[in-house]
Design a protein around this nucleic acid. Structure first.
Lengths: 338, 338
DNA sequence: CTGTTAGCGCCTTCAG
DNA sequence: CTGAAGGCGCTAACAG
């Protein structure tokens, strides 16, 4: 079961090999008659191009890499499905990798991306940059960083960074909460205190909530575990909880349920990240959405343009600003009247 | 930023191109001195092999395709992370696709797999076989079908099918339920009545539960919506619910919560598929696990051996039995004493 | 308008 | 033990 080659098609159509290539790529001037004959033969033999051969000549593989922290996180699973769909539509194939595995596994993945001569990659980096990641970035490939910034990877603006601006969402959430009569608001930071994103969310909370309900009523709890943070806030008579990290919110929902507090009545909550379960939960959970769809779309569009630019042989002159997508507050049932 | 080629390495090491190839592939007899010199040059220049060039000669791309129904389903997300990790460890890169999108999108993905000259694929097919899927299967590539059988794709045993045997799990679940004093057990089939898997689960339930608690007490509810099925079963004084499809169980949990029935006390439930949320829920949900990890491992191992076999030029003689992995009952908190 | 020539990066004979 | 020649499938440049 060897694949049909362009040569087989040429033979079948009674023309030379390059002629077939011309026809299939709409290059050069070919008579309508020959053209049709070639097309017929190709279809008849079910010719399928060999992308390896094509990329050898074109120095473009029509392949991109996508690295996320964890495929098993529905937030990233959604991002992946979004990204792969868009790239597929533009004729690109995606190689997916997850860094949740060992650093070793991640570096192996990145190396295989290089081996595959990918045209570019979208990275959602996590924590500190591994050696492999730094080498990867240094390769000069068209790259887009999504959702998180890693300062180790900063490269003087060569690499576009697209992430979410927490301020609009937090502001809207706090306004809503306040309008419902809540005056003591807690922010749960949870255990993953290293992420710059999470730190920023906390920072913005302190500013915004402080000015809305007064600093003493805007309380941040950042303990070793989310649970202890929640208990701490409860003991300090907080009536609304804002979660910067969605797994913490899930933990809180379980805990409140466990101790018999009704969400939306006894206690109000808002979480970052609009993952599906929040919409399906009862009561449904109000969220500060990162607009991942927009983020994914921008990311793909940006990478596509970077890759095209390089294909045309242009030097990448411009340096990129950090594109920030505003978060939006999605009001559901978990914020009740005080 | 052109890539370093074997030629560059040869030049740097002061040897010919084939010599470098020999060294890098541990072929032929090369003196230790030259060998070392070549290795040093390769490392110094940071040589990264071009897999396109390699695959052109070897007719092996070290690439496999993976098609799942929906990446956004955590069951499949987990399967993907499992599969990609294993393949990566064996030197293969995975191309991931989801058929949840349009049939058109799926066929486009499958076509691009062919274009990429993948060495094999793991398929978790869904519903009826599209034209593209049938053509794909007809290509004769090494294939493994996971988790679901699609009769349209049956090919006289050429393609190994690995799925789960629902009987052991269902049997254990019903024994447990019975030992807790429950005597009326309902099975919720839900809306997706087309899947052969779901039909089999129902079939086995009828047999096993029928013989354990008597046919009149083993009630199947298969309505247009899971919710109406649940209500129906409630009205018929069922005290234990078994769900063949995990999204239905999630819906039930919400509903029971909504109407104030306590799971594990007022009502007991068991669901198929051990997705993370069941373990984290409170009370945690007892499940009939498909042992996806085992299934994934077997699938990968089987495909690897099929691909190796073909690489060695062997005809695939044997035909495969349908390998069935026993389901297991994982007892948690959602089954209470009656 | 179509065929010839050459070469992408690599590996496999086969001479030397 | 090492180098020279040829070819995998495809396309760009040039002849005819």
């Amino acid at each position: 079961m060897n694949y049909v080659t362009i040569k087989d098609v040429a033979q079948e159509a009674g023309v030379s090999v390059p002629t077939v290539s011309q026809v299939l790529n709409n290059r050069g001037r070919i008579s309508a008659a020959t053209r049709q004959r070639v097309l017929d033969s190709a279809k008849k033999l079910d010719y399928i191009p060999n992308s390896a051969a094509i990329s050898m000549r074109s120095s473009s593989t029509k392949t991109v890499g996508v690295l996320v922290p964890d495929i098993n996180n529905s937030y990233f699973a959604y991002l992946i499905s979004l990204i792969t769909r868009e790239f597929l539509a533009s004729g690109y194939v995606c190689l997916i990798g997850s860094s949740s595995e060992s650093l070793e596994g991640q570096d192996k993945f990145l190396h295989s991306l290089l081996t595959q001569r990918i045209d570019g990659a979208i990275l959602v980096p996590q924590g500190t940059a591994s050696h492999g990641l730094q080498k990867f970035v240094a390769s000069g490939l068209p790259l887009v960083i999504l959702d998180r910034k890693v300062k180790e990877l900063a490269d003087g603006g060569r690499i576009p960074i697209i992430d979410a601006d927490p301020r609009p969402g937090i502001t809207a959430a706090i306004e809503k909460v306040k309008s419902q009569g809540h005056s003591r608001i807690g922010f749960v930071h949870g255990p993953t205190s290293k992420s710059p994103n999470l730190l920023e969310r906390q920072q913005v909370f302190i500013e915004v909530a402080g000015s809305q309900v007064g600093s003493p009523n805007a309380i941040v709890a950042s303990h070793v575990s989310a649970l202890s943070a929640i208990k701490d806030l409860l003991s300090r008579h907080v009536t609304t909880f804002i979660f910067g990290y969605s797994p913490d919110a899930l933990e809180a929902i379980r805990y409140f349920h466990h101790i018999g507090l009704n969400i939306g009545e006894d206690v109000s909550i808002v979480s970052f990240d609009d993952i599906p379960i929040f919409e399906l939960a009862s009561p449904s959970i109000s969220v500060i959405s990162q607009q991942q769809k927009l983020m994914g779309n921008y990311g793909v569009a940006t990478l596509l343009s970077l890759m095209e630019q390089r294909l045309r042989g242009e030097q990448q002159g411009e340096s990129f600003d950090n594109l920030r997508i505003p978060t939006v507050f999605i009001d559901r049932e978990s914020v009740g009247i005080r």
